[in-house]
């Protein structure tokens, strides 16, 4: 199968800090990749370059084998790359439809907002995610954690995403809502969407992802199938940068001794 996204040798610096240092990752349709690492390992920064929130200092991104220029979130969305941020990035004072269409509003022929059309579409997409949801006229600050998560996911689904990036999708949720998100991820996978999941929760990652990629200090440590590793090995990679074959990722050992 052909990869839908290839990120090759990506670098990002903030001042003197190498936030991402030669990281690469491929994604395939219908596959979940779990991206793991400590706080500050560079996971979020790396993924924000795919979603257009940050620009790369060096490196290349290919979408469908074609070089892609992603310099802002609109570019990413035009390529079918949608991001569900850890903070959900919802405007709390706006209602569900306004949030789903935020930045991509439906307009009437005379360029006014078409509220009715947006609400109609919002009801359709929310029904897929959360059939019991009915608070369409409330500002999203009045919604529960799970409902807010649904709105953030609906924003990605509404525009026929092909690649969905989820940053800590279950961090703020209770057990039931976590289960809901897990079911949703499996459903998206069946639809042939490529997913990247950043998570601290090893249990979730092992449960849901097909492949695992580990980062430490902005560098790539190891990428492989979930089946060929276990939680202990992954923990060693996250904490020590020690790969399953006993070797260390380049640059890791020197950092530890220094």
């Amino acid at each position: 199968m052909e990869p839908i996204v290839e990120m090759k040798n990506v670098y990002k610096r903030f001042g003197g800090i190498h936030a991402v240092d030669d990281m690469s990752l491929d994604m395939y349709p219908g596959e979940v990749v779990g991206l793991l690492g400590h706080n500050g390992a560079g996971k979020s920064t790396f993924i924000k370059m795919l979603s257009g929130a940050y620009s790369m200092d060096a490196g290349e991104i290919f979408v469908d084998r074609k070089p892609a220029q992603i310099s802002n979130p609109i570019d990413a969305k035009d390529l079918g790359i949608e991001t569900i941020y850890q903070t959900l990035a919802l405007a709390d004072n706006l209602d569900t439809a306004a949030n789903i269409f935020f930045g991509r509003e439906i307009l009437t022929p005379w360029r006014a907002l078409d509220e009715a059309a947006m609400e109609h579409a919002a009801i359709q997409v929310m029904r897929r995610l959360n059939p019991a949801f009915s608070k369409f006229h409330d500002p999203v600050r009045n919604l529960s954690g799970g409902q807010r998560q649904s709105v953030a996911i609906a924003r990605a689904l509404q525009f026929n995403a092909r690649i969905i990036i989820m940053d800590e999708p279950t961090a703020a949720l209770g057990p039931q809502e976590t289960q809901m998100v897990a079911d949703l991820i499996r459903a998206l996978k069946r639809e042939g969407i490529a997913l990247v999941m950043i998570s601290h929760d090893l249990h979730d990652v092992f449960d849901l992802s097909d492949r695992i990629s580990v980062m430490k200090n902005g560098r790539h440590v190891w990428t492989g199938s979930t089946e060929e590793t276990d939680k202990d090995e992954v923990l060693q990679m996250i904490i020590l940068g020690k790969r399953p074959d006993g070797s260390y990722a380049p640059g890791i050992l020197a950092d530890e001794n220094a």
């Binding site: 979603s51 979130p73 709390d92």
Partner: peptide
């Protein structure tokens, strides 16, 4: 949410 506006492009 200024950040959300930014991230929405």
């Amino acid at each position: 949410n200024p950040e959300a506006a930014e991230l929405s492009g």
